[in-house]
């Protein structure tokens, strides 16, 4: 828990990452510049388009007016029920960067830098937000152990009191008696 960023000091860890990301970003930008100089921008290949679409489903549209991902943004109450201006800009950026061959991680990191962690539709399993992923797994496991223990205990209790638990065996006599009682209508 110590490594958890405190609410006041905004993320000492991310700052370290920021230096790394910054370096990476510079390197990537240089690479892209070189690439762009060598080849003009092209339309995405089907594989790249698929990647771009997958990325668009991992990022939230940050217009503030919807809760959709960039890929599914449609403002049904607005004038145009397609991606809004924010989503379109984000989609364009994703397409361009995928087209330049940048990695998913780099693209996502840059979006986080620009918009904050809320831009990721699911939080990464890091820091405090790690809990969101781990608890739905951990708690059922703990509950499972608990239920298992309860079941074992109940079973032991059942074994200790076999007579009460099992009741009298169903004999021909009992069946006969049941039938007689039923026929005489004395059951209810």
């Amino acid at each position: 828990m110590e490594s958890r960023p405190s609410p006041r000091c905004v993320n000492p860890q991310p700052r370290l990452r920021f230096v790394g990301e910054f370096g990476l970003a510079i390197a990537a930008s240089l690479a892209v510049l070189l690439f762009l100089a060598a080849a003009p921008a092209r339309a995405l290949t089907p594989g790249q388009a698929e990647r771009a679409h997958a990325l668009s489903l991992r990022l939230k549209c940050m217009c503030g007016g919807c809760n959709d991902t960039v890929g599914t943004c449609n403002h049904s109450g607005g004038a145009f029920a397609g991606p809004c201006a924010t989503a379109q800009a984000m989609l364009k950026e994703i397409d361009e960067r995928v087209g330049r061959g940048e990695s998913d991680d780099l693209i996502l990191q840059d979006f986080v830098q620009e918009y904050g962690p809320g831009v990721l539709i699911s939080p990464p399993a890091k820091g405090f937000d790690w809990l969101v992923w781990v608890m739905p797994v951990l708690l059922p496991i703990l509950a499972f152990i608990l239920v298992w223990e309860v079941v074992r205990r109940w079973k032991r209790r059942g074994e200790l009191q076999p007579a009460a638990a099992a009741g009298p065996p169903v004999s021909a006599e009992l069946l006969d008696r049941a039938r007689r009682e039923a026929e005489s209508g004395s059951d209810e």
């Binding site: 958890r4 960023p5 609410p7 006041r8 905004v10 993320n11 489903l57 991992r58 939230k60 809760n67 991902t69 904050g116 962690p117 809320g118 831009v119 990721l120 539709i121 699911s122 939080p123 820091g127 405090f128 937000d129 969101v132 992923w133």
Partner: peptide, 15 residues
């Protein structure tokens, strides 16, 4: 999360 870390996060459909 916002209460603890001070930053807004999203927990969306993929989760």
């Amino acid at each position: 999360s916002e209460w603890v870390t001070g930053s807004k996060i999203s927990v969306g459909p993929p989760f």
